[in-house]
């Protein structure tokens, strides 16, 4: 599993997977895909890194506590943005976010930034689930506290 061939091949294809994932996330509102699909692609690249380079190196690179912070902040930003939009629309302030031309990258209001946030959450959650199956508990991961 951890021969140098695999390591070198992974070194090449890992960025490609991540770029594809980012593409799926960012173009989620104009083509098939979106936050969940792209996030799972990025998450699978993180899992691949962990499988190939071993858990110690992955733990050093993806520190549990920072990832958790990232997830929480993304979720909070997502909730605040979406909730604020609903609240403001109910109170009568609408139409302050330009919708743009359908089909363009910068269109669809807030959908793209929200997709990016979902992508972050989903990718890290997938990585966490894989880690959980390996370690038993997330607290056992290095750098938990």
């Amino acid at each position: 599993m951890k021969t140098s061939i695999v390591k070198n091949v992974v070194k090449v294809i890992l960025p490609l997977i991540q770029i594809f994932g980012a593409y799926v996330i960012i173009f989620g509102h104009v083509s098939p895909g979106g936050g969940f699909a792209g996030g799972s692609i990025v998450g699978s690249s993180l899992i691949l890194y962990r499988l190939i380079y071993g858990s110690e190196r992955a733990d050093r690179k993806f520190i549990y506590f920072y990832l958790l912070k990232l997830v929480s902040i993304s979720l909070v930003v997502y909730g605040t943005l979406k909730g604020l939009i609903f609240i403001l629309e109910h109170l009568g302030f609408n139409g302050f976010i330009p919708i743009g031309v359908p089909g363009n990258l910068l269109s669809g209001g807030l959908i793209m930034p929200l997709n990016v946030l979902i992508g972050i959450v989903v990718s890290i959650t997938f990585y966490f689930i894989a880690t959980l199956f390996e370690e038993g508990e997330l607290e056992n991961v290095n750098g938990a506290e």
Binding site: S31, P32, P102, G103
Partner: peptide, 10 residues
């Protein structure tokens, strides 16, 4: 077709 807008055509 799949509901994807291509070239602004709706």
């Amino acid at each position: 077709e799949a509901p994807i807008i291509v070239d602004g055509e709706i």
